[in-house]
Amino acid sequence: MDAILADMFPPSRLGYPVIFARFVGAIILGAVIGFERESKNRPAGLKTHIMVALAAAVFAVVALESIYIRGLSDDNVQVDPLRVIEAVTAGVAFLAAGTIVLSRGEIHGITTGTSLWLAGAAGVSLGFGQWIIGFGAVLAGIAILFCLGFAENRLGRANSVVVDDANAPKGDLPKAD
């Protein structure tokens, strides 16, 4: 039983209170971005942004902790936590691409896709313990979303981008058989 408990609660270099604080910070940052998207009824809202930020933080913390795992910390093994940034970026980009839709000659969802990317970046920042970078980035992102959103509304601009209308499909896309 002691072996199982030791496996479930291994020693942590960061300390579990620090790890959980980083997770809570990532949840808060994801919620801030997600709330803005949710308030505009976008396809990825509060829960999605929170989950992206939290998952990114988990990957970053696991990467940091893996440096000190017995068997991975000897000289013959190279652990590179920065590869986590590449993996999180690729994974979040895949999710973000799913929010972008071409419909009736207009592209929708690009801003939501980029906000997911920002949530992932904020989560990685918190996971690596870079609180000021994470909070600063989210603060800047929210300022951009609100200020430019306000400016677009004042100018009467739509929330989509018109593409080459002559070649754009009309109506709904055909259904697969």
Results as ranks from 00 to 15, higher is better:
P169A: 14
P11R: 13
K175M: 14
A151E: 01
A90T: 15
G15A: 12
I100V: 14
A119Q: 06
D74F: 03
E38L: 04
I132F: 12
A166M: 02
M51Q: 07
I142L: 14
I132Q: 15
D74R: 12
N159K: 13
R154T: 02
L64S: 10
N159C: 01
V124Y: 00
A6S: 13
A44R: 07
A44L: 07
A26P: 04
E36Q: 12
G113F: 03
A168W: 04
P17M: 12
L64T: 12
V58C: 11
A56T: 01
P10N: 07
A90V: 14
I50W: 00
M1G: 08
K40H: 15
A143T: 14
A90F: 04
A119P: 04
P174M: 09
F135L: 14
S125Y: 01
T114K: 01
L118G: 05
Y68V: 01
W117V: 12
V163T: 13
I110W: 03
V101A: 00
L29Q: 03
V52W: 06
L102F: 05
S103T: 04
V32C: 07
G45I: 05
A166I: 09
D75W: 01
W117Y: 11
R154M: 13
W131F: 15
A90L: 14
A168L: 13
A90M: 07
I69A: 10
A57K: 01
T114R: 01
A57G: 04
N167M: 11
F128V: 02
A137R: 04
I19R: 02
G156I: 02
I133R: 06
S115C: 10
P169F: 10
A26R: 02
V58H: 05
I27Q: 04
E36M: 07
L102N: 08
V52P: 07
I132K: 15
I85C: 01
R37I: 09
P17T: 04
V62M: 12
P10S: 11
G136K: 08
S125I: 00
F35N: 05
I33M: 11
V24H: 03
